[in-house]
Design a protein around this nucleic acid. Structure first.
Lengths: 221, 221, 221, 221
DNA sequence: AATGAATGAGGTTTCATTCAT
DNA sequence: TATGAATGAAACCTCATTCAT
């Protein structure tokens, strides 16, 4: 799906068995890196833990990615792209704007829930003020497709007289993101401050419903 | 204000000049640690950067806090407590529930904006699944006072017939927290995904107004 | 008993209550030091473990003994002197040379058994080629009284025609010391090489009897 | 000779030039460690002194041995094995039991004299109650071969009517070990207590003769 | 393409010791 | 006399990285 086949040094476009194995090794390292960086953050992650998790060795990381920082950037590119790819899969039913809106919220929420590594890596990246994202040309050109999908849904809803006329797409996008992301990213400390297990099925269901409701309340005509 | 005078080994409650200086040293270290941990995270923070920032030396950190992990726990206790203390300062006008609600949202938003270190440290703590919070007895007993304040405001609003009858306080608390926290915590990567500078005054004002509006829409009768 | 009231800096010869307390503190530190040095050796012993074991604080060690090395020397003097004092308590029955000889062997063996700290500290001192002993004037003048007691016993035994005429006292002293000391000092590694628990009551009894027998065999006329 | 080619993580059984160099590096570190640990004990030995003595660097010690403790265990295994290997070289002349017995005593005595590092390391190990030996599976299975050699000599001597019938091999082994080891291990403090230089050639000769004589006296028929 | 060996900088922590009341 | 505060050197160990097949 992804167009991100990495411009890193090696990995010729030849299709010999050897080249195939090389691509697999690179991929194993990348996936291991996603895992480990998401568990430990950039500073806490250890090269050798990654290489072991990839069933490879330290040296190969340098061979394929140059150094730890560039590996992290590759990880960022990979998880960002994963999100964008998923977005594009989303098939909205514009005939029913209410349902389409719910689809977007649900998709977002579920994606965060199922991709903790994405949430964790975003968190680390924000801690460092996106310093790694800024180093990737590829990432500079990224932009979420959801805003435009949202715009289409809103337009359809407005046309049908269901939604308010003065909806700001950016605000709506941020509202949805806030309501879905925060629950995932801050579960652990929220449990401290709220004295409640946010991770139970029932609580999650309740929160999902609430998020949808809140968004509805704020866009309805 | 704070009840957290941290019972770490040294520093008795005696009031000699020496003891006073000691308390100051400990405090300088703690503040430097808040700063550095919030900039670099637990793993990325360096003991010697903290001690230099505190105008002290590495050894004193171990003298007062035992080790890096316990220092981080002390930092957590300190920033958590700082938040709770601020909460308690909040004087709500229950006669005007709309205004009180806005006060709560504004307070929360501003606190996060002005205490980036709190947001950053919460982020790191969530990355590690609150493993440090779980080590502090003190933190185990913490719980935000805002929920109960919120409950009172809602009750008042309901009595005056201004607010819906079926408001769930937990949901409302989470809604407000989401809308205020996420903007602060994820500014940097949001800029990537939204292609927009979230940090401008005008955007911030706009977002603040939106957050208030969203909450209003969802609680009004 | 001991004449070793230490020439270390403080500890005036005044008899006020304060001076008494001071002497006690010093003594507590010394005893704690004997304990800790014997468990960990000079290099492995920690000043603060000693001061805590003495219910005192690091600073007092420097106050009373100057530094770690001088404390160790004081410890050496103390345990050496303890051994010499015990020797002098030994009342031999010269009328029965066989019994006297057994007394000496038994005393030596039992002393080592009951004073592991003496054995351990001697071991550490030998590791360092007695470098600390050589720093103590007092120790330079020490010399075991047992050799002369042994000489008297041997003379008596020879006069009664019980013992060989050509006994070398130094050799006999070394023989006895070897047979009694080695068992105590090397118990742990011997268990490795002999595949046997040397520490059982029965084994110890057997070895004690053997040692006596070996000595008898080598001195009898 | 040795069976102890130590299976520590790296250094596969490949025979490339590189692997050969690696084995040499590991060996250099091990030998340096024997030296330094025997001079300073476990606690007193410094990693960087070992690495410098090995013409290597600290990092390699961790690469090959994991940590200081495991290095010490490797040292223990090495010196224990060295002793066992030497034992096995011993060719006894069972036709002449007296001579064979003297051979054993002489071998033991000379081994200790010429392998001070063995004596020193045993001493340190006993100080810590063989805590490192207990961590080595290999060492757990060790057992000196001398006892069985001794048993054969004694049997031969008894058959020829030269030796007592009721000799306990364990006791005899311990007797010989005591008489030979103690002189080596305690030379320095003995000089203090005996006021005599035990290290002179003449004294050593005298003591060697005495040890042989003592053993003879105690086994002869 | 892959990997074992090597390295140096730097990280956390410990230690003996001194300062200042 | 006693003790809490402070310190710098150095200890063990880890880390990212490069070298050499």
């Amino acid at each position: 799906m992804s167009q991100l086949d990495s411009p890193s040094a090696p990995t010729q476009r030849n299709n010999s068995k050897q080249a195939q194995k090389a691509r697999e090794t690179r991929q194993r390292i990348l996936q291991a890196a996603v895992q480990v960086f998401s568990e430990e953050g950039f500073a806490g992650a250890r090269i050798d833990r990654i290489s072991r998790a990839a069933n490879s060795n330290d040296r190969m990381i340098y061979y394929y990615f140059g150094n730890k920082e560039q590996l992290f950037i590759a990880v960022l590119e990979s998880v960002y792209q994963g999100f964008l790819d998923a977005e594009q899969q989303l098939q909205l039913n514009l005939d029913d704007p209410w349902q389409a809106l719910e689809q977007i919220i649900t998709f977002t929420f579920d994606y965060y829930l199922e991709h903790r590594e994405f949430v964790a890596i975003l968190g680390d990246e924000n801690l460092h003020q996106a310093k790694h994202s800024r180093q990737s040309e590829h990432i500079q050109q990224i932009s979420s497709g959801i805003q435009s999908q949202l715009a289409r849904v809103v337009a359809a809803g407005q046309q049908q007289g269901l939604l308010r006329a003065d909806i700001d797409i950016s605000m709506l996008y941020l509202t949805i993101s806030s309501l879905t992301y925060f629950y995932c990213s801050n579960q652990y400390t929220l449990s401290v401050f709220m004295n409640q297990d946010l991770n139970s099925d029932s609580f999650r269901q309740q929160w999902r419903a609430n998020a949808i409701e809140v968004v509805r309340d704020t866009v309805k005509a």
